[in-house]
Simulated scan of single mutants.
Amino acid sequence: MAEIAQERAEDHWEVEALYDLCFAPGREALSSYRLRDGVAKVARLCLVARGRAGEVAGAIRTWPVRVGSVPALLLGPVAVHPTRQGEGLGGLLILDVIERARADGHPRMLLVGDAPYYGRFGFSRLEGVTMPPPTNPERVLGIALEDGAWGGVSGEVLRAGD
């Protein structure tokens, strides 16, 4: 399968190359990237899946954000090398990040993605939480890492530093 470990500084360019391979050109123009710009990743929640030769076969990153004045985590991007897709690496990375975030006491996490895929990990549509345009509101999903963590939380998703 693959070994999952925290992303190291020396993995940066290999992870970026994987994201370039897996996502359309211009990925950094997406609204979620505006929330990441100039903000440090949550290092413990940035993971790589390594193949037998030590290569990065998959990667996931997590960023701090706010929903109004309430702190949250923004999950993504998650990518798996095309030659390794279908092996469950993406799911393993997502589950590992959720488990680590919960253990670290983070109350809530959100992402922009497909509900049928992310729903199996516990994510569901967030009512009243808006990402910067042009994000489709149907794709704004969240998971409570503590009971009731999304209760009463609404507003615009903002950069953690703003």
Rank of each mutant, 00 (worst) to 15 (best):
A49D: 03
D147R: 14
I94C: 08
I94S: 00
D37K: 13
L47A: 11
P64E: 08
G152R: 04
R52S: 07
G86P: 00
V67W: 07
V70M: 09
P134W: 05
G128Q: 12
Q85V: 15
A43E: 14
A57S: 08
G113R: 11
W150F: 15
A53Q: 10
A40D: 04
L110E: 08
V67N: 08
L110S: 12
G113M: 11
G142L: 13
V112P: 14
L92Y: 08
C46G: 10
L45T: 01
D96Q: 13
R61K: 07
T62C: 09
E127N: 11
L145S: 01
A101R: 03
K41W: 06
I143C: 06
I98D: 10
I143A: 11
A103D: 15
G58H: 06
R120L: 08
R84W: 15
R102P: 00
G113P: 10
V78I: 15
L47V: 08
A101D: 00
R36F: 01
P133D: 11
E138R: 07
E99W: 13
G86K: 02
L141E: 07
S32D: 12
L74P: 00
V42G: 00
G86Y: 00
A101W: 08
W150K: 00
A43P: 07
R66N: 03
I94H: 01
P107W: 01
S69R: 12
R139K: 04
K41H: 12
P116Q: 05
R50L: 06
V112H: 13
W150H: 14
P64A: 10
P137L: 15
T135D: 02
L92T: 11
Y33H: 09
V80I: 07
G119L: 12
A79C: 02
I143E: 03
D147K: 09
G51M: 10
P64W: 14
G91F: 02
L95N: 09
R61P: 05
P64R: 13
I60N: 02
T130M: 05
S32W: 07
P134F: 05
A103I: 07
R125E: 06
P64T: 12
Y33T: 04
S32C: 11
T83A: 15
A79Y: 04
Y117M: 13
A49P: 01
R125V: 13
G51T: 03
L73R: 10
G88L: 01
K41I: 09
Q85A: 14
D114K: 04
A53G: 11
M131W: 09
L47R: 08
V67P: 05
M131L: 12
A59V: 10
G142W: 11
E146N: 01
P137V: 14
V112D: 11
D37C: 06
T130P: 03
A57N: 01
R125N: 08
L95W: 10
D96C: 10
N136K: 14
L92W: 13
L93R: 02
V67E: 07
R52K: 05
A149I: 02
V97M: 10
D104H: 10
